[in-house]
């Protein structure tokens, strides 16, 4: 019983943070929606939920890596738009898709490099990267248009063995993230670095002989690559390049990560929590669409949720 209450409140003694409560929220929202509107339990709507949720799940999982070590990446929204713009440039898929990942890795590397080598605050580094990428995206594609390679479209819209493709995207994303976070030394080192940062001893992990800078850079590369993956998925859904498709996505991703019990100051959090957090956001969006809530006020509601979630997390540090 005490173990359960500890899980619920996310008290110390767990590194996974509070994830059971958001899971209950997911179920509660689902229950409420199925009682409220007939369309929710409709097979078509349920089938749509997975592709609707997928870009956020992928981005949030990437964002979680940098948040765990006490960082933040505000450039993922622009990264998503940028990816759709690159895919819509009109070239062969075999060149465009690897190019997208190489570019994402480059952006992630720049973020990490600037943060670790020049002592720039992650928020400032990634905020400026957000604008630089947005500018480049608008040069490539001032308004939405162009066409993305067919293979991208069918990889999102089609199905395999009767199972819709987005499910496989989800499986691959989670498998890769699970391996990185729980099945490698890198994952443990992420928690170690975050543990040092959030307890105020920035070089604690370094003193244990961990190559902290390299791991931090790697986390930003992973974050950017996951954003690129989300961008490819979105490009497949909208079938074109759109300079605004990723707008404010970084905030949704941060909200999802925070809802899932991951502490924004680092060190505490979990992959399943993040997925649950993303599902909360996706279900909310789905429910608001079904109940005809104005898309404008949806932005406001999402912002208010973010405010609420971060206000509930206590933090020692003040400021940025």
């Amino acid at each position: 019983m005490t173990a359960i209450s500890r899980r619920l409140t996310g008290a110390r003694g767990s590194r996974q943070g509070m994830w059971l409560l958001p899971l209950l929220i997911v179920l509660a929202i689902a229950l409420w929606l199925s009682l409220q509107t007939a369309q929710f339990l409709n097979g078509e709507n349920l089938l749509n939920l997975v592709p609707q949720a997928m870009p956020l799940v992928i981005t949030a999982v990437g964002q979680m890596f940098v948040i765990l070590l006490g960082g933040l990446d505000l450039s993922v929204g622009s990264m998503i738009s940028f990816t759709t713009a690159v895919l819509a440039l009109g070239g062969p898929a075999w060149a465009l898709i690897p190019a997208v990942f190489v570019l994402a890795a480059l952006v992630g590397f720049s973020n990490g490099f600037i943060i670790t080598r020049f002592n720039v605050h992650p928020i400032i580094a990634t905020l400026s990267m957000q604008y630089i990428l947005l500018g480049i995206t608008r040069v490539l594609r001032p308004v939405s248009g162009g066409t993305v390679p067919d293979i991208v479209i069918s990889a999102v819209a089609g199905s395999f063995l009767g199972i819709p493709m987005p499910v496989f995207w989800g499986i691959v994303t989670l498998a890769v993230a699970w391996k990185l976070l729980y099945g490698s030394r890198f994952g443990l080192h992420l928690f170690a670095i975050g543990g040092g940062v959030s307890s105020g001893v920035e070089d604690a992990a370094h003193n244990f002989g961990i190559a902290d800078r390299r791991n931090i850079v790697l986390a930003y590369v992973i974050c950017a690559c996951f954003a690129a993956l989300a961008g490819i998925f979105l490009a497949g859904r909208i079938v074109s390049g759109d300079p605004n498709v990723g707008l404010l996505f970084e905030l949704d991703a941060i909200t999802a990560v925070a809802i899932g019990g991951t502490q924004l100051s680092g060190a505490i959090g979990s992959l399943h929590g993040t997925v649950i957090g993303a599902l909360v956001m996706a279900l909310l969006a789905n429910g608001m669409n079904l109940t005809n809530v104005s898309p404008f006020i949806q932005t406001t509601i999402k912002g208010a949720i973010l405010l609420l979630v971060v206000a509930l997390q206590s933090r020692k540090k003040m400021g940025l």
């Binding site: 110390r12 443990l188 928690f191 170690a192 244990f208 060190a267």
Partner: peptide
């Protein structure tokens, strides 16, 4: 200098 969010075993083997 132990890391609070890691287990005893993880702390003892951290880095190796």
């Amino acid at each position: 200098s132990l890391l609070p969010n890691l287990t005893i075993a993880e702390n003892m083997f951290l880095g190796r």
